[in-house]
């Protein structure tokens, strides 16, 4: 049964670790903007230099 003491302790440490990570994330401003990063991640880093071609397909709804 004494194993449970250790397990409970370990589980709480892990949970507290996540709570601390959450508080750190809010503090460092990660919750300030929860839209832009979702768009930013889809951009390609750097395209080779080509002349742009008209593309009509991937139009309108980006919101």
């Amino acid at each position: 049964m004494s194993a449970i003491f250790v397990m409970i302790g370990a589980s709480l440490v892990v949970a507290l670790g996540f709570l601390a990570a959450f508080i750190w994330a809010v503090r460092s401003g990660q919750m300030d903007d929860n839209y832009t990063p979702s768009v930013r991640i889809l951009f390609d880093d750097d395209k080779p230099v080509t002349k742009s071609v008209k593309k009509e397909e991937n139009s309108k709804n980006n919101k």
Binding site: F43, K55, N58
Partner: peptide, 15 residues
């Protein structure tokens, strides 16, 4: 934009 090779702008969305 064209002079700076940034026409990807027009590829992401039209107009």
């Amino acid at each position: 934009l064209n002079n700076n090779n940034l026409c990807t702008y027009y590829d992401l969305n039209s107009h």
